[in-house]
Each structure stands twice: as structure tokens, then as C-alpha cells.
Design a protein around this nucleic acid. Structure first.
Lengths: 199, 199
DNA sequence: GCATTTGTAGGGCAAGCGTCCTACAATGGC
DNA sequence: GCCATTGTAGGACGCTTGCCCTACAAATGC
């Protein structure tokens, strides 16, 4: 098997395990077992655990960028794009109720561990923050675009945190609906499309 | 030194270390060092690490209950009481920016570790949830009191999460002010006291 | 002043950690 | 068909973990 393919497998598995069990609680052996590699052979692909973390964060950043660009293409209006973001909460509800927001929980853990890569993880947040900010600016809210972006991000983090604690799917849908109402109120003139009822 | 006093010291130190570095990353040795006890002697006071965690959670629950009762006494109106809760974000801003919300981060970590005590940690959330719910009910919002309580809890969790990531004190004050405005709008008839400007 | 309880010190245990090394199988260029 | 490169297996390393034990000091009861 080619090295790059094995490497990608390692990063995929590590990504999943870091999300499900946390970075610190995931051991080299755990990743190796799931990839089907011998423990020691890891050294060939990744010298240290931190190196794996860096690769995982880089991959998440790349995928996030791709997702945001796709929304930029697909969604008709900035308002629709923001709705796409908000609806991530519903699309990923099962995983969120089990393990929280991948970005938020990673940032929290790395902050507690006072880990080098902490700032890199926060940069994942910044991707969303800047993208949301641009959408709000496009809606004519240039003056407070960044504050609005942080507000949306804040809400989704809060929803994810409580959804994990209480495992309440209705709560998620209720708060998403509330965010949509809020969104409409922010830019009454803008077209947000038809406000679909949550399923 | 009396056993109960040493025990209390252990729980206090463990509480702090669990908050600052997380449960998993805090070792027996770390706690022992900070208390000034020999490593091995822990066995006398606590058989297992989980036992320490249970004691820490129990202490947090007791202190939370005491705080909520104090607010019940001090604050004139239910609205003022809810404000007391919201202003925790500002009062504890430094610690929150460094280590997040003590309850939220603990729940997240225990969920990832799939730890026995997970539900006990969530019960800390429920203390706030039920208390807030009672305040909203007292404001005449019986029908959706619990949903409103969850909404307030959700917001404070979101603010704490992003405050940790971006270390932005202004963001905290802005969102607290926004929550106060929202609060006024929820129960226009109720007395919320004068809306102080955040310092 | 002796005996029992209460609390502490220090170290040992097996297991697991991240890391690192060496030996070997598979592959592809020449 | 030989050789260098690429990738893998398996285990050893030093360390730390949670946990447990025994020996001893200090306090307490009678």
C-alpha cells in the first residue's frame, strides 16, 4: 500500500477518534488498531502524536474551506448561506448529541492541555467566523458583520454543548428555528428564501 | 491534621485542577503534590480517581445550590435573579477565557470519555436549568419556562466556548448586554430593575 | 503508661503511554 | 536478477499512570 494512502487512512481514523474520545484519551495504539497497522510502524508515518494532530487539523481546515466554498456556489443568497451553516446543527445532530461540536470540543481540550496546536484549532473557528462575517457584510451589515458572525457561532456552540449534555433533539430544532427567525429580523430587506419548517 | 480537613483540601485542589487541566489530564500525583501529601497516601482518603471525581461533582452541586439560594434571597425579582446568572459570565470572565465553563467543559469531557459520572455532571446543568425555569415561570411564562431556561443556558455556554477560543472580553460584555435586552423583551411587564451598562 | 485508632510516608505493582530501533518483506528501476 | 528504496512487523526503552501494601508516627482512650 502506498505511503500516502496509509497516511490518509491514519489521519481519517485519528480524526474520528479524536472527535469521539478526545485527543488526550486517544492513544497511538488505538489509532494503529483501527487502521490495522502495527503499533511501532507509526513512527514511519508520524514521528509524534502532535504531528498527527497537526495533520488532522489541517485536513479539517481543508474540508471546512471546501464546504464553505460549496455553499458559496450553491446557495443563492448570503442569507441562504448562513442558513446552510445553521442547519449543520440538524444535519449532524446525532454526532453532536454524542460527541459535541468537533471544533468547539477540540479547542476546549487543547486550551486545557495548554497545547501548542491550540491556536491552529482556533483558526478552524476563524474560518467560519470570517465566512459568516462576509455573508453579513453582503447583506448590508458591514458595520457589525463580525459581531453578528460571532453571535451565530456562539449560538451554534451553545446549542451543541447543551445538546450533548441533555441529548435533546427537539431542543436543537427549536433553537435552529429560533435562529432563523432572528436571522430574518436582522436583515428584513434581504431575501432568505422560504422559511422551511424544521422536519 | 484531621482526616476531614485533608479530605476537603484534596477535593478543593482536585476541583481546581480538573477545571484548569481537565479530569483525564490530572493525575493522582498532581493532586498529591499540590495538597502536599505523599502520592501513596491518597489511598487512605480516596480509593479511586472516580471517587475523587464524585466528591468534586458533589461539592460543586452543593456550592451551586447555595449560590442559587443566595440569589433567591438577595435579588428582588425573578428578572433580577436571571440577570445574576447571566452576569456570572462577566464576574468569572478571566477564568472562563482561560478554561471555559466549569460545568460545560466537564460534561463534554466526561461524554467523550463515556464516563460513569457523566450523568452526575449533567445534573449540575439541571440545577441551573430548573432554577432558571422557575424564575421564568414566576415571570408568567409557565408555558415555555423550560425552553427559555435552556435558551439562557445555551447562550451562556456558547459565550463561554467562544470566549475561551478567542479570549475576547469585549465579546463577552457585548453578548451579556444582548442577553439583557432579550430578557427585557421576553417579559415586558416584569420589573428587571435598571439596565446597568456593563462596566 | 499502655493500647488502639487515625493518618502518613514511601515504595512496589502491572499496565499503558509515546517514542524509537532493528530486522525483514515487497516493490520497482536498471 | 540484483540492488536500493519503500513500507511493515514487532518489540524494547524509559516513564507515568491508577492502584495497593506495609511500616511507622501521632494522637486518643482508658
Amino acid at each position: 500500500m502506498s505511503a500516502s494512502k496509509t497516511r490518509r487512512q491514519i489521519v481519517d481514523v485519528a480524526d474520528r477518534l479524536f472527535y469521539e474520545h478526545g485527543f488526550d484519551a486517544t492513544s497511538f495504539a488505538d489509532i494503529a488498531r483501527d487502521v490495522g497497522l502495527s503499533r511501532g510502524n507509526f513512527y514511519y508515518h508520524f514521528k509524534t502524536k502532535d504531528e498527527i494532530l497537526a495533520a488532522v487539523i489541517a485536513q479539517r481546515a481543508a474540508r471546512t474551506r471546501a464546504m464553505l466554498e460549496a455553499w458559496e456556489q450553491d446557495a443563492a443568497s448570503p442569507g441562504e448561506r448562513i442558513r446552510s451553516f445553521v442547519h449543520l446543527l440538524i444535519a449532524n445532530r446525532t454526532k453532536i448529541m454524542a460527541h459535541g461540536c468537533p471544533v468547539g470540543t477540540l479547542c476546549n481540550e487543547l486550551a486545557k492541555l495548554d497545547h501548542m496546536a491550540k491556536d491552529d484549532a482556533v483558526r478552524l473557528f476563524s474560518l467560519f467566523r470570517n465566512w459568516l462575517s462576509r455573508q453579513f457584510a453582503a447583506l448590508g451589515r458591514d458595520a457589525d458583520a463580525d459581531a453578528l458572525a460571532l453571535h451565530v457561532l456562539m449560538r451554534s456552540q451553545g446549542v451543541a454543548a447543551l445538546a450533548t449534555a441533555f441529548r435533546d433533539e427537539d431542543f436543537i430544532r427549536r433553537e435552529v428555528a429560533d435562529m432563523e427567525t432572528w436571522l430574518q429580523a436582522q436583515c428584513p430587506a434581504a431575501s432568505f428564501g422560504h422559511s422551511r419548517q424544521p422536519v
